[in-house]
C-alpha cells in the first residue's frame, strides 16, 4: 500500500523557512485552502466535459484496500472512498450505472499529462508539490489521529480519552500525533518521542510503550499489515487544525475541477461526508471516536 505519505512538521517548517529566507518576503499563509473557488459555476450534467460524454469515469489503484474500498471492488459502493465516490457522482447528476471505473497506479495518477479519468480517488494527500502537476478538488477527508495498541495490552481496552490518561504513549517527533497526545489526551506521564514511526512501532512491539498515536490511514495499515496482534483503540476527536487532507485528483486545468469541488463541498455541508466517515471508518473499520 502506497496510498499516502504524511508530512512531518519539520519538513514543512524547513521548506517554509527556506522559502522565506530565500525570497526575503513574508508568505505567512502557506496553509491556504487548496481548492479553487467553486461557487457559482454552472454544473449541469449535460454541459460537463467528461472523458466519455454522459458518463463519469472514476479512477483508483489496483488493488485497493479496506477501509477505503471493500473486496477490491470499487463499484460495490462500499468502503469510505467507494461510498464517497458514488455520493459525489450522484451529486453531480450521474446515476450509479453511469459511473465507470478505471484502474490507474497511484504514482501514474499524479504525473502531469493527459488523463483517462474524470477524477481519481485514492487517498491523495493534497500537497503544494503535487498541485504543480495535477488539480485537486476540495478536500473530502481531514486526516484524524488514532491510537493503536497490542491486543494483549490493557490500553487496547480503553473506550474513552480518560482511559488513556495513565498509559505510556508514544509518537513521532514533530507530528500532529504528538500534539494530539499533549493537547487532547494530556496523559499523566510524558510521552516517548521517536525519530520515526518505525522506531515507535518497534517500541510498541517491545512493550516499551503501551500505545502509539498515528494518523488514522497509517493506523489502518499498521494494524492490518505490519504488527500482528495490534488493534486500533480509537480515533481522537478532530482538533480543528488538521494538517493533512485528502482530495480527488483531476487533470491539470480540468474543466471539471470546479464542479467536482462544488459537489464535495455540498456533501460536506449537508453532513453526507461525516456520515460516510462515521459508517466506514468509525463503525465498520472499528475506529470509534474517543471522547
Amino acid at each position: 500500500m502506497h496510498s499516502h505519505r504524511s508530512r512531518p512538521l519539520p519538513v514543512t517548517l524547513a521548506v517554509l523557512v527556506g522559502a522565506v529566507l530565500a525570497a526575503g518576503c513574508a508568505t505567512e499563509d502557506e496553509g491556504a485552502p487548496p481548492a479553487a473557488s467553486s461557487s457559482g459555476v454552472a454544473c449541469e450534467k449535460s454541459t460537463l466535459q467528461t472523458v466519455t460524454q454522459g458518463r463519469l469515469t472514476i479512477a483508483t489503484d489496483e488493488p485497493v484496500y479496506e477501509p477505503w474500498f471493500v473486496d477490491n471492488k470499487p463499484d460495490n459502493q462500499k468502503g469510505f472512498e467507494g461510498a464517497t465516490a458514488y455520493a459525489i457522482a450522484t451529486k453531480m447528476g450521474f446515476t450509479p450505472a453511469e459511473v465507470k471505473w478505471v484502474r490507474v497506479p497511484f504514482n501514474a495518477a499524479i504525473q502531469p499529462g493527459p488523463k483517462n479519468f474524470d477524477f481519481d480517488i485514492n487517498e491523495f494527500s493534497i500537497t503544494e508539490e503535487r498541485k504543480q502537476a495535477v488539480d485537486f478538488s476540495a478536500p473530502y477527508y481531514d486526516v484524524t489521529q488514532a491510537v493503536i495498541a497490542l491486543e494483549s495490552n490493557d490500553a487496547a481496552r480503553a473506550t474513552n480519552l480518560a482511559g488513556l490518561k495513565g498509559v505510556k504513549l508514544g509518537a513521532q517527533v514533530g507530528t500532529t500525533s504528538l500534539q494530539a497526545i499533549e493537547d487532547t489526551i494530556q496523559p499523566n506521564q510524558d510521552p516517548a518521542v521517536y525519530n520515526s514511526n518505525d522506531d515507535a512501532k518497534q517500541a510498541l512491539i517491545n512493550g516499551q510503550i503501551d500505545a502509539l498515536v498515528l494518523d488514522l490511514p497509517t493506523a489502518f495499515f499498521v494494524t492490518a499489515a505490519e504488527i500482528d496482534g495490534s488493534k486500533i483503540v480509537g480515533q481522537l476527536p478532530a482538533s480543528g487544525n488538521a494538517q493533512e487532507q485528502f482530495g480527488l485528483v483531476l487533470d491539470k486545468g480540468s474543466p471539471l475541477t470546479a464542479c467536482v469541488s462544488q459537489a464535495v463541498e455540498a456533501l460536506r455541508s449537508d453532513g453526507t461526508l461525516a456520515n460516510i466517515e462515521q459508517e466506514w471508518l468509525a463503525n465498520v473499520a472499528g475506529a470509534p471516536v474517543l471522547q
Binding site: 512531518p8 512538521l9 517554509l16 514533530g174
Partner: peptide, 8 residues
C-alpha cells in the same frame, strides 16, 4: 525539536 515543531 518538539518546541520548535510547535512554534514553527
Amino acid at each position: 525539536q518538539i518546541e520548535s515543531a510547535e512554534s514553527f
